[in-house]
Structure formats: structure tokens, C-alpha cells
Design a protein around this nucleic acid. Structure first.
Lengths: 207, 207
DNA sequence: GAGCGTAGGCGAATAACAAGCGAAAGTCAA
DNA sequence: TTGACTTTCGCTTGTTATTCGCCTACGCTC
């Protein structure tokens, strides 16, 4: 159940009043606080809040309004969001102080996966350095058997060695696995000797 | 069920608004936030989100949109696994077929944040290229006013321009902001002209 | 490339509901 | 019984949601 703006104001007042006085206000007092001229309006608000389950009260009993505590699920929701999604505040180097941002786009790991069963590997070695993937970085990998030219893949050469390289088709059914490091030579293998394990969707780095 | 970019923006706004106000926005307010001229468009988006099961609402009732949270049981399996945590399968370039993995370590965004209120910025420009941070990368930023030598910081120079640079203290109360790009010169400023906005905890890149 | 489905969009008219009023009548506990 | 409350009635006036017709753009299939 949700509240409208006005209903929330009424509820807030009820909570505040009770916190202060340990008893609940009369309709007259509520009307004054909310600048209402008619008790009928107050009555309607109170009725609505009761119907929606935010308060309880005794029929015809004065000052009998009780605020019902919110269940924990609300709190959990907030925390879960905070942990798993980070707000995207904008772009940097645009020349602005990046303060007040109302957009509230968010980033979560799912933005990096798309397919449901991606996994992460930690990179060892410098073979992709010139592609800005460093020793210790984490790569998000989508399992697949095929790849397109130029994509970064995790591949198994000759059934033994797993490597991280860029993938290129060459003439005569050959595949070239190209490291991004001028000190390393490309690997040329027959397509039959190569088993692609996955394609790289993203990179994560932790300082 | 998946969302389009626009739909996600709408949902993000709904979540943000409700977190802030504890009640939901009117269609008018949604339209303004998303820069839409017609309420009909908002209505269609809201309808779609409802059909896809992300929100619930009362027919003809104002401000009645509720964002649906998955029950805890489902959440643990689906979200925590697929969305927020990815299995860490091991290290690559170690020479193994990376199949059978029993370790089941996981990576989640919270591994990148530590502090509770980190946020994300998208990098524009090439100023940190030699540090392997590229145009379009996302950086995870922890808000802070201080930094240590050599850390990458988001800083405001002269109250106007926000930049991403490495931070170094120099003699005589000067600060040097060092880009990681041989074509760019370092910036030297008095400490009083510099306001640090945050420190970079990590980098996320999406291909 | 024509045809089709879906997402995203616009404005304006219409329908529902929320919020308000005043006055009178009803309840309850001291 | 009385004073301090709460309920109820009919009616008005915002505020919001819904709907209709029509448009563009994109990706897919035949």
C-alpha cells in the first residue's frame, strides 16, 4: 500500500506527535497542524490511513490512534539496493562540480553480464597489457563456443593451455590468437586445435 | 524479464523518488524528471513495467506505484547469484582448462566499495590512458577530502573543473595533479585551490 | 526492400479519485 | 450532565490517471 503526499504528511505528524507526547492528537489538533479548516477532512485522512494499514484506532475513542510499525522488509530493500547497485553520478572531465544529481541511473554487475551464467576470472600475466588489461584485473566472461574477429576470448589451445587473447580468423582454417603486448608473438593454430571457452564482456579492477 | 534502457531509467527514478520521499511520484512528476512532454508516454512506461512485474499499482489511484521487491528466498538465488555476485572461477593463463571448479569464491560490487556510499562516474577523455583507464570506462569513487601520494583522485581545481588525476604533494604547499598521458602536462596548484571530491577504488569496463 | 512488431513518443479530452468545507449529530469518560 | 471528542452528510474543487488517435524509429523476417 502506498501513500499520497498529503497522507504522508498526516502520518508524519502522527508519528512526531506521539514521539513527543506519548499520546495521540485529537482531530482538532491535527487540523490545526495541517492547516485544515474542517474536521471532516481530518477524519477522512485518518480513515484512509487506517484502511491502508498504517495506523490502528478504536472506534469513537478519543486520542486512540496508534501508528503501526513498518515491517523489516522495507529496511532490507534499502540496504540491498545500496550494496548491489551504485548510483551513476555522471561523467567526469566534463568540467562540472558533479554535485546535485537527480538522474539516479545505477550500475550493477548485471549490466556487465547480459547472459545469465557469466563468470569471473582473475588475469595473470601481462599478455593483454596494451589492451589495458593488467595483471590482477578481473574479467567478466560469457561462456560461448564461437567468437567474432577482434573479440577478446578465453581459449584452450591443444586441450591444455588456457589463454586470454584477441581472436582472428586467418586463411586456410587457421586461427590467430593475438596478444596485446609487443614482446609477445601471436599464436597460429588450426581451428580444430582450438576450443573457445568464452568471450570477455568486461573488466573489473580493484586498487 | 528484461528492461530496455528507457524502462530502466523510469524504474530507477521510481526507486529513487520513493527512497527519498516515501511516497510515489505523480505521472506529471515522472514526465518532468524524464523530460517527457506527454503523460500518455509515462502511462505507457508504467503499464509496461507493471506488465513485466517490476511494479504494482492501483487502477485510477494517484501515487499508488509500488516497486516490487522479490521475496528474500528468490532474491538470494536469482539476484545475489546472477546479478550481484559472479563466481570467481580461478586465474587464467595458468594453463588449465578451467572447468571443474570447487572453490566458488564470488565477486560482487560491494567488493569494490568498502565504504558505504561510493558512487560511479563514467570517464570522458584520455587523460589516464597510460594508467589503463580509458574513455568510456566507469570508475568507482569513494567520497573523501584527503588523499595519499600516488592515489588517483577526482578533484575540483579552482572550484570549477572536475578532473581525474594522480595526486602528489610537492614542496611549499603545492599539489601536483599528474595525468597519465605523455601528451598532457601535469597541473600544479596551491593546496587551497584544490578540492578533492573522492578517491578511485576501482575501474569497470564494458565491451 | 517491403512488411511487421515493438519501443518510444505527442496532445487533448475525459473520468476518477483525493482533498477540502461547514454544520449537525453522536459518543464517552469523568 | 457536560465538555472534549469523533462521525457523518452533502457538496465543491483540485490533482491525477486513463484513453484515443496518430507519429517515428529500429530490428526482424520473408
Amino acid at each position: 500500500m502506498t501513500l499520497t503526499k498529503r497522507q504522508k504528511q498526516v502520518l508524519d505528524y502522527l508519528v512526531g506527535f506521539h514521539n513527543k507526547n506519548k499520546y495521540s492528537p485529537s482531530y482538532e489538533e491535527i487540523a490545526q497542524a495541517l492547516d485544515l479548516a474542517s474536521l471532516a477532512t481530518v477524519h477522512k485522512h485518518v480513515g484512509t490511513l487506517e484502511r491502508k494499514g498504517f495506523i490502528r484506532r478504536g472506534y469513537n475513542q478519543s486520542r486512540s490512534i496508534e501508528v503501526i510499525q513498518l515491517p523489516r522488509s522495507v529496511r532490507t530493500e534499502v540496504i540491498d539496493r545500496a550494496v548491489n547497485e551504485l548510483p551513476l553520478m555522471g561523467r567526469i572531465a566534463a568540467g562540472k562540480p558533479l554535485e546535485s544529481v537527480e538522474d539516479r541511473e545505477t550500475i550493477s554487475l548485471s549490466d556487465f553480464t547480459r547472459s545469465k551464467n557469466a563468470f569471473v576470472l582473475q588475469v595473470k600475466g601481462e599478455s593483454m597489457r596494451d589492451d589495458h588489461i593488467l595483471d590482477g584485473d578481473f574479467i567478466v566472461v560469457e561462456p560461448t563456443q564461437v567468437a567474432n574477429n577482434g573479440e577478446i576470448v578465453v581459449a584452450l589451445v591443444g586441450g591444455e593451455e588456457a589463454t586470454l587473447k584477441r581472436f582472428y580468423r586467418e586463411p586456410a582454417g587457421k586461427i590467430r590468437l593475438q596478444p596485446a603486448n609487443s614482446e609477445m608473438a601471436p599464436i597460429l593454430v588450426a581451428a580444430s586445435d582450438l576450443k573457445i571457452q568464452g568471450r570477455v564482456l568486461g573488466v573489473l579492477r580493484k586498487y
